[in-house]
Amino acid sequence: MQNKKIYSRLFVVPAFVLYTILFILPVLGGLYYSFTNWSAMKPTITFIGLDNYKEIFFSSGSYLKSIYHTLSFTLYTVVFKLGIGLVLALLLNEGLKTKKVLRTVFFLPYMLSPLIIGIIFISILGPDGPLNMVLRFIGLDHLTHSWLTEKNVVLGSTMGVEIWRMVGWNMVIILAGLQTISKSYYEAASLDGAGRWKQFTQITIPFLMPTLMIAMILNMIHGLRVFEIIYALTNGGPGDLTEVINTQVYKEFSMGRYGMSNALSMVAFIFTLMIAYLIKLVSSREEAAS
């Protein structure tokens, strides 16, 4: 039997040390400051316990609204990213002639900085921008909007851009999952006379489940941490229509209210952790059951 002792933890030390000093330590610092009234406007820092957190959840301010926006942003983007990603992956898994080029194309947006994507889409989504032009050209005038300023549209627009950016990434992960499913299952199934739909629901989906779960967790994390794309597109506006947790964190930070800013980002952290943990729990239980 192989001796596990050879795998010495010394190998973990460099990563562990680097990560602890330059990441965990500052994060703990942030956690500590979230219990203070630290502000660039004041010469002293006082410990104020849970006051910042109380303000987030119990004041009538826009904090709750931004939490709500973040959650709905996450929900919708996760569903569409996974859905469209799945469709693309299935299409590309079918032996299309140009699948390599297509794969490259769909993954391309992920390579760009969200800031740059924001700049591009500000011009595309303007009232006289290319999107509305295309809509008018094909006779769908009634669908034109001022995408980044209208009340019931703007949050959806930011979601759309985020989905645009991330479908390729989802497609790649799901494609990988599809390729791990052995062809023999399908062959056996078609010998048994199972139709394509039945094969999809009884072979593809169950075998793909672990992949989808992981993709879901990662998408969830991306969604809850959303910042740059909204910052670049609308900066949380107009008004507070697209304000999410991290744009608020940034706003508090820019006002020099570091204590509050830290408390808000801790809230986002705890939310994400809880949801990620929940998904992991559910998925591992399912795995155990099957």
Partner: peptide, 24 residues
Amino acid sequence: NKMIYNYFFLGLVAPLNYVTTIKV
């Protein structure tokens, strides 16, 4: 080692703080 793995996983979720990073 499982704990260490989860410890690293935290980093995917935790928020970076610039001011405290500067101090470190």
